[in-house]
Design a protein around this nucleic acid. Structure first.
Lengths: 209, 209
DNA sequence: GTCTATATTCAGATAGAC
DNA sequence: GTCTATCTGAATATAGAC
């Protein structure tokens, strides 16, 4: 029995692994398609083409197109939230507020532009996703916004940001400057870090003379 | 004959007018639907419902869904470009660069958030529109970008913006801050001008202490 | 000008062979 | 696990009555 058990374990382990791998390949393809064409305009055959299989085969891994979208959103939000938290915490507790916010901006843009099609898809197409899917993912997004809200509020409390600033407005303008990069950035043209530095400088210093 | 001529003229004038009016009603509905749901997710029956007619009737006024999208893009870009030019030129030739850029920001946001669903649709869904439509409207958008490029460059030339700024990068970050408002702004919550003032202050002064 | 009815095309989803 | 073949529903677009 130990042998059969071992064999079975190996076999099902291998199967499970193959399944997990091609499931992920399909999801990668879905994230790319959703990002580039939008949700409604993406056909299952587009995803299948990019994943190297036939449209019908997708249903071995997923129940529906909506399920794929939902998982793409989940993975994308987790990726960017983790990256930002890690980027800020890596600085240690004595970093300046400017450095903390700068690190958050850098991590956000790296995920969006270089690391994760899932994050990019989440940010780019969330607003046009089916209402039910949007509703389901509101709490994630709210938690992420809340993290940024505290980041900025702490900075103001300690005098690193002007006391008279409308922080929730500023936060949304900052998100806009960062998130809109997905509409125009050409990865060939330069690293996300360069954009991040410019955004941080604009936020803190402005461009007036 | 003068009578018949007059009658015919009046009658065809009235018909033409009715036609123009309901054509515009359909296009208004299309702009709203495209803005809210995206292009691919909008059905002709959505547009028809909102315009108070049946889906088939739309084809009396338009040849295709794509034609509607193309006209929405045209009207939206013309509206925002005209508004921005007018806003800047109204200041007269002796206005400060800060005031000129501030006026451009205000006009852009007013169109986007309060005046024109056409402009909002153009900005929000352009990136997910069919490739052929995007291609056709590239020159318009390029001209608009060019206007802003000169606005910022003139300011820098005269010393109103820092000499070391990467203006094309800054311009795209600014566009992002402004354009992303269409994703989050709640028209009930406050006027576009308030957002415009915050954006202008951020651009010139920054928020650091 | 707008309607009803319909042709046509297409995309999401399912069934069963391999 | 992936394929081929197919069902089904939907959406664009057309035809002809009113």
């Amino acid at each position: 029995m130990p042998v059969e058990l071992a064999d079975t374990t190996v076999a099902s382990g291998a199967d499970a692994s193959k399944s997990r791998i091609s499931r992920r390949r399909v999801l990668d393809a879905a994230a790319r398609c959703f990002l580039n064409k939008g949700y409604a305009a993406t056909r299952l055959s587009d995803i299948a083409d990019e994943a190297g299989m036939k449209a019908g085969s997708i249903y071995y891994h997923f129940d529906s197109k909506e399920q794929m979208l939902s998982e793409v959103f989940d993975i994308g939000m987790t990726a960017v939230f983790d990256a930002v938290r890690t980027g800020v915490e890596t600085l240690g507790p004595n970093a300046s507020h400017r450095d903390r916010i700068g690190a958050a901006i850098k991590a956000h843009l790296q995920q969006l532009l270089e690391q994760s099609d899932y994050t990019a898809a989440n940010i780019r197409i969330f607003g046009q996703a089916p209402a039910e899917i949007q509703r389901r993912h509101m709490p994630d997004r709210e938690a992420y916004r809340e993290y940024w809200r505290l980041l900025l509020e702490d900075a103001r409390r300690d005098g690193a940001l002007r006391a008279d600033a409308d922080l929730s407005l500023i936060r949304m303008l900052l998100f806009g400057a960062l998130n809109w990069t997905v509409e125009w950035n050409d990865p060939e043209k330069g690293p996300a870090d360069k954009i991040a530095d410019a955004a941080t400088a604009m936020l803190f210093d402005g461009l007036g003379t």
